[in-house]
Amino acid sequence: MRTVVAIYTGQGLADPLKAVFQEVLPGVRLVNIIDDSLIGDINKAGHIPPGVARRLVQYYRHAEEIGADVILNTCSSVGEVADLARSLIGVPIVKIDDTMTAKAAASYDRIAVLATLPSTLEPTMRLVQKQAERAGREVKLVNGLAEGAFAALVSGKPEEHDRLLLETALRTAADADVLVLAQGSMARMEKKLAEATGKPVFSSPRLGVEHVKAVLDAL
């Protein structure tokens, strides 16, 4: 049986992602490593502190020791740490948002990136830009920061989170051809946002797991 170890910096995505794995990769052993202090430390610092990067690399090493065939990095805020860690870890590391951002960059000229945290928005926008450069394309990036939405969510106000995210989507949709959801936990809003804006909306969980499947199939 193949093993995938998923690394989380917060609690919200583990159960939804488990459901996607059961559908896309039902025969795979899924092991979760969750440390929600990581996103807290990133938000407090406004960037990725060295201690967070060190802990993440340790978790990648733990995943290797567990017997992972593939490591899934589930947090867009730390994707650049995953890029650097690939040279240190002997197991493929898949970033959950790689396929989503590549798909958007390859097909659309104006791309709105929606996020509830600057620490997630900025690296995701950089990733979209890199994907566009790899594809030899020029794209316009639209900032879709839903200010206050993350605070509402962690305060137990999911309806307020969803309202702020919807308002941000409607505001940015006029200047965009596609909306990209920077955080996997926002995937449950994908259909609602698409219906409200009339624009394509991409989220990362299913595309990320399909990427894992492709890597496993190639091993």
Rank of each mutant, 00 (worst) to 15 (best):
146 A>Y: 00
184 G>P: 02
141 L>I: 13
179 L>A: 07
11 Q>S: 07
164 L>V: 09
155 S>I: 13
111 I>Y: 01
23 E>C: 13
16 P>A: 09
200 P>Y: 05
179 L>M: 12
46 G>K: 13
188 R>I: 07
21 F>E: 02
151 A>L: 08
120 T>Q: 00
20 V>P: 06
71 I>R: 01
212 V>C: 07
123 P>Q: 09
29 R>K: 14
18 K>H: 10
19 A>W: 11
87 S>V: 11
128 V>D: 11
185 S>V: 02
208 G>C: 13
194 A>E: 13
164 L>N: 02
185 S>L: 06
71 I>G: 00
80 E>Y: 10
47 H>V: 10
51 G>Q: 15
158 P>H: 14
114 L>I: 14
40 G>H: 12
151 A>S: 08
94 V>D: 05
115 A>T: 04
76 S>P: 03
176 A>H: 04
183 Q>G: 01
178 V>N: 01
205 P>R: 08
13 L>P: 00
73 N>W: 06
219 L>H: 11
44 K>L: 14
159 E>W: 08
125 M>W: 07
71 I>P: 00
105 A>V: 01
63 A>E: 06
166 L>F: 04
206 R>F: 08
50 P>Y: 13
109 D>W: 00
168 T>Y: 04
115 A>R: 01
137 R>W: 14
120 T>W: 02
59 Y>D: 13
43 N>F: 09
31 V>P: 06
182 A>P: 11
70 V>Y: 01
49 P>I: 13
202 F>G: 01
209 V>N: 05
143 N>T: 08
137 R>C: 15
67 G>C: 12
217 D>E: 14
60 Y>T: 12
126 R>V: 02
187 A>Y: 06
54 R>P: 03
133 E>G: 07
99 T>P: 00
72 L>Y: 03
28 V>M: 06
74 T>L: 05
78 V>S: 05
81 V>L: 11
95 K>Y: 07
187 A>R: 01
179 L>G: 03
97 D>M: 05
144 G>K: 07
119 S>F: 07
39 I>P: 00
52 V>I: 12
153 L>M: 15
70 V>N: 02
52 V>C: 05
32 N>T: 10
212 V>H: 02
42 I>D: 01
76 S>L: 03
7 I>S: 01
17 L>M: 14
14 A>H: 00
196 A>N: 09
171 R>F: 10
120 T>P: 02
189 M>L: 15
126 R>E: 06
91 V>I: 12
120 T>F: 00
189 M>E: 14
198 G>W: 13
139 V>N: 01
161 H>Y: 15
133 E>H: 09
44 K>P: 12
169 A>Y: 02
210 E>G: 04
176 A>M: 09
